[in-house]
Amino acid sequence: MRSLNASDPKQFIADFFTSYMGELLRSDGDPALIVDRYHTPDVVQIADGHRMDRDKLIAHTRPVRKNRPSGRLEVHEALADGDRIAAHYTLHVRDRKRALAVEVYFFGQFTPDGRMRRAKMLTRTIPAARDGVGVDVAAENGRPAPDGREAGA
């Protein structure tokens, strides 16, 4: 995954989140370095009206790592226009305490090297799939970070 322009939009968004989460979970390294590989320094995410900047994204890595979620991203539809992408996907997650599925309507803007610059998301929790969760995102470790550096570098 290098560029939104050179990728299938559905594959791009699936690869972005799978690779980011996988790198967070298989490494105990400085989360700021991982966040910075996948986001611009001035990144702003707004999820259900909650604003997250770089500092909040970094703070959010701690509960992610503690809860050790496994899961898969099911992308239903994605459309790209230049550096922007709109996607409808469902995140199927199981952690040490619960299983849940979160349906997401996503609008984002990415840099040419594949880092997230802006994102707005509307989410809703839906009943988790009866068959549980598919692949372990921590095992999805074959893809390089958007900026091309290796994991943990």
């Binding site: 259900d48 909650h50 994204l57 703070a59 959010h60 979160v102």
Partner: peptide
């Protein structure tokens, strides 16, 4: 600390 969204 660490809460980012409604799910948190």
């Amino acid at each position: 600390s660490g809460m980012a969204c409604g799910h948190c």
